[in-house]
Design a protein around this nucleic acid. Structure first.
Lengths: 216, 216
DNA sequence: ATGCACACGTGACAC
DNA sequence: TGTGTCACGTGTGCA
């Protein structure tokens, strides 16, 4: 394989290469090739500048890529690309793991909700099977004393929420009896209204209805 | 800038280049430069093969990088690197978003746990302030009838868990009274043991103690 | 024909 | 000394 000498003979015009004909920076190094050049400057390849621009752009891109990759082993071209490859693989694994964890977390949340819904369905079915209907009764048994009867679906934490709600309403529970049976919760309670709490029976009934509806 | 013709004259030995002197694959294209070559083969640069290997390795790396990036705009070297850069940026943003979401989710979970712990501490402090101690009493009031008294910290869902546990133990709750006060929960219940459930009072007491400890 | 992208072989360095 | 990396200027095929 031989390249003909006649075709290789060339020269650059002194115009656009005047800035680099004297000294050229090449990756921090100085290309002193000009020192062995002859004096004849005649021919210039057409795509010389194009090739220079192409090389420059490519080097810039390579530097950009270099700046993106944190793990640096070497400054050489090949290692830049290799590091970029390993970094991309790392990032891909990272994304996979994270999305997997996120999916699991969402799945557990969905599971919880699902089991809760199943519980509700179960209790609702059971209540319906036994002809038990949600019910709230409120009756005055004194100026600040109330008798309350609640029949609702049995649900985890429902009783506690009911208790908290009644505390917030300003009810002081004197005595409470709870019976859980057939998927339903029967609560009878004698309460005393304190701190200017609500005393109107109908209003209390509506509020309690809202509460036991809000639980589900 | 001129490169001397004498220095550019060169040739390759027919040995290690015999496989490529006839035809060379260059990126899917065929380099037919050999057709204009002369017949003189004398000089070979020392690092010719080294440079060839270097270029080959670099091309391989570039191809690897190419295979990793899904979004393809062009097959050119520069676009390969550009696409890789944009892809890396995408992956980084992806990782950031995912980890942020994960952090938020974990934070909400941690919040819940924290509030639960705060609740426990509060009830424990309140109970201690009022001199209320956790307590479980079990007494026989018939062959298959038990009277149970439980004093424990008030905790969301604790009562329901207690009920479920007693259901699992084979207890049928005839009547139950619950009083929540001073951060404590007082439960008195008369239950009937069915389906060959446990009837030994001490054993039941230990189990109930384990349960109310397991709740927290 | 014109521009573009590429591989090639080479000299110059750096370690 | 050699080994490896680089930029360079080209030749060549393709759109």
């Amino acid at each position: 394989m031989v390249i003909k000498c006649a075709k290789m003979e060339f020269s650059n015009t002194s115009f656009d290469d005047s800035n680099i004909s004297e000294e050229r920076e090449v990756g921090g190094r100085i290309d002193k090739r000009k020192k062995i050049e002859g004096a004849d400057e005649k021919y210039k390849s057409k795509n010389l500048n194009a090739e220079r621009n192409r090389r420059q752009k490519l080097s810039e891109r390579l530097l950009q890529l270099r700046s993106l990759v944190p793990n640096i082993t070497n400054m050489t071209k090949e290692t830049i690309i290799t590091d970029a490859i390993t970094y991309i693989r790392e990032l891909q694994m990272n994304v996979d793991n994270l999305s997997e964890q996120l999916l699991k977390m969402e799945a557990t949340h969905g599971e919880e909700l699902e089991t809760k819904n199943e519980e509700i369905i179960d209790t609702a079915e059971e209540m319906g099977k036994w002809g038990i209907e949600p019910e709230v009764q409120v009756a005055h048994i004194g100026p600040t004393k109330l008798w309350i009867k609640i029949v609702c679906q049995k649900k985890r934490g429902g009783f506690t929420k009911l208790m908290e709600a009644m505390n917030v309403l300003g009810f002081d529970l004197n005595d409470t009896s709870v019976t859980a049976s057939k998927g339903a919760l029967l609560v009878t309670s004698s309460v005393e209204v304190v701190r200017g709490g609500i005393t109107d029976a109908h209003q209390i009934r509506d509020i309690l209805l809202e509460i036991i509806r809000g639980i589900y």
